[in-house]
Each structure stands twice: as C-alpha cells, then as structure tokens.
Design a protein around this nucleic acid. Sequence first.
DNA 1: CCTCCACTGGAAACCTAGGCTC
DNA 2: GAGCCTAGGTTTCCAGTGGAGG
Length: 397
Amino acid sequence: MSDSIDEIFRRAKESKPLFVNRDALSPDYVPMHLPFRDPQTRAVAQILAPILRGSKPSNLLLYGKTGTGKTAVTNYVLTKLKAEANNPNLVLAYVNTRLADGEYRTLADFARALDLTKAKQIPLTGLAIGEVVDRISDNIKTNKKKVVLVLDEIDYLVKLFGDDILYAFTRSGTKLSPGFLALVGISNDLKFKEGLDPRVLSSLSEEELVFPPYTVDELRQILTERAKVAFRPSVASSAAINLCAAMAGSEHGDARRAIDLLRIAGEVAEREGLKEIDDSCIRMASDKMEVDRVDEAIRSLPVQNKAILFAVSRFDGGTNTGELYLAYNNLCKKIGIETLTQRRLSGILGDLDLLGLVEASVVSKGRRGRTKKIQLLIGKDSLEKTLSEDPTFAALA
DNA sequence: CCTCCACTGGAAACCTAGGCTC
DNA sequence: GAGCCTAGGTTTCCAGTGGAGG
C-alpha cells in the first residue's frame, strides 16, 4: 500500500490487464446460456409463449432467494421473446419495486417503460394513484399494447404498500382489450403470499415457479464459465474459483454475490500488479464488499439518521433510548439542525437496526422501566470518516 | 404476587412540497 | 388563483408492558 508512485506507474506499464471483458462479471450481464436453470427457463418461455400469437399469457410468480437466477432467467427469456416477436405493440417492462421505492414511483417507472411520459406526462408527484392507473390502462387500450410487466422484488412492494396496485392490474382484464397486461412477479420472500388479497393471489399466481439456491458446486461451474469470458487464461485458477464459490455460497447459494466477489478480487489483483488471483485477493475483496456496503448505507442516510448514528457512536459500551436522546439533543444544537421527538428517534433507530448499522433490542430493567439497548455495529473510525464527507458533520472531526 | 418505571409502538393528525382541474 | 389531490416525514396522543424490587 505504501508503494511509490514510480512503482505504481512501472507496474501499470509492464503488467497486462487481467480482464478481457469485465462486463461478463457485471450484475446485469445476461450470458448466452444460464447453467442449471434450464427447467426454469423453459417453463418461463412456455408460459409467455402465447404472446407470439398475440394472446395474453398467464400471470406468473417466481420465487427464490437473492441470487438464484430469477431476474436473469426473466431477462433472458424476455430478450429472446422480444427478438422473436418483432411486434411494435409488444412492450416488455421491467420495474424493480425496491429501487423504485414506493407505490407511486413503481407506477411512474412502468409508465416510463410504456413511453407514456412523452405522450401524456406522468409527473413525479401530484396525481392520485387511481388516476395514474387509469392513464396507464387507457394507454394500453387505445394503443392496443401487449404488455408484460415484470415486477422485481414484488414482496417489498406488498410488504410496505399493500396490494392495491396489484389488485387494480390483476382485475383490469377485459377492460384493456384489445391490449392486455400480463404480470410477472419476482419475489425473494417465500412467505409473501400470506398478506395478499386472495383474489389478487389467485390471479397473480396462475403459474408459479420456485428457484432453488445454487449449490457450491453449481456456483463453481457458473464462475468457471464467466471467468473464461471475463479474464485472460490462467488469471482465475480453479483454486481461486473454488474459494469464491465457497465463500459466497456457504450461506445461501447466492450467485450474484459470488460473481461480484470474483470481479472485485480480479480488480484487486490487477491493482496489486499480480498475474493471477490468489487467496489474499479474494479475502480482501470480501472485506471490501462489506466496507462498501456499510459506507454506501451511511452515505445515503438522511441528515437526521446520520446525526442519530453519530450520537450512538459517542457511547462506547452501548446506551439506551433516554440517554441517547439527551446526547442527540446536544448534538443537534451543536451542528444546528432541528431536533426530532423521542418517538421519532425511536422509529429511526428501528430503521438503522434494519440496515444493520446498530443493534437496538428492547430490554426490561424491572422497576426502572423498559428501554431499547442500543449498540453500534460498525467501526467508529470508518463511521466518522464517512460522516465527515457531509458538510453538516465536517466540523465535528 | 403486585407495582410501577421508562419507555415501546400503534394510530391519527399535521405539515410540506409537489401537481391536478377549473 | 382557489380548492382539490398525493407521498412522505414528523408530531401528538396514549394504551400497553416485562420484570426487578418491594
């Protein structure tokens, strides 16, 4: 790490790049062939095939944990379908409801995919949900559009905002004729059906597919295949690939994580001027992924959440709600931001807990009441460093 | 076994920033 | 411009509670 500049430049000149095609390891790369997902690929293709004859396919629900290939299979089939159909009225829309973050924005994203934004604006806010649904329905009907809407991470949408949108779309049926709208829901959560209106459920899950997690052995083969495309020969040894597969797969057979790990390990090796990826690169990559995740989570926090997180970090041995609230009050005065109520602080603490930045568990202290026992789960130093990028907190360093 | 603390966490009201229609 | 809409964050209100100390 303490290499001189000369050293860095010398290496850059001498060493050949390890990557031939970095994209092959990017999260949204769709490979020519999806290993170990043939049955699912066929099933999805079969269910969606009626589109080619211009009729509405069944709604479809895909289940499986993260990184089991649900999104990849869907994209793969849709890409092929689009090429095959050659029909200008066919619209394949993909919305990730977690990234869209909200009922309204999910709809707005969908409208954008339908190219509705140009014809008749769907503004960022201000319209009633029902109005947006109507406009979308109108557009499908009058333009005779054949639409397949993929709702990725649909469990997130339902959990936070209920199933109103789904209800509207699953029931729209004949109203859209001669166009139609077929739904493909993708869920990470196997239990998400429980909260659903039974009418929505029966309509949405006309067809269902379950994606099992990859085994470590399958991950190994997937990585091997990708590595062949991504790297020069002999950069990623089978030992390195084994380790990546084992580290990412031991928990839940997550292919996305395994692929990310291999890519970052490759980047580390390249930076270090190595000819191949070794164990230490992979371990460094794994650490880096964790640090990046935490850093990014902190950076994107609203100011109040940052302040509370900072206040938590002032207590080395953990703290409780009452004590934290006092410290937070002082902090707000010092940096000149508004002070929220204790109720709100408690809520934000819950959010921070969900993000894995703090641990906040309810404990009872008998006569002396109940409170949340709060502890910082991340390094104090890196928190301060990340926080100091924010001008509001810069002075505290 | 009962009390009673210091909160928790649900519910509803309120506020702001945006946009609609007439 | 008036009077309506929504989303999303926040405040207000308050009933509910686990368990140490009596």
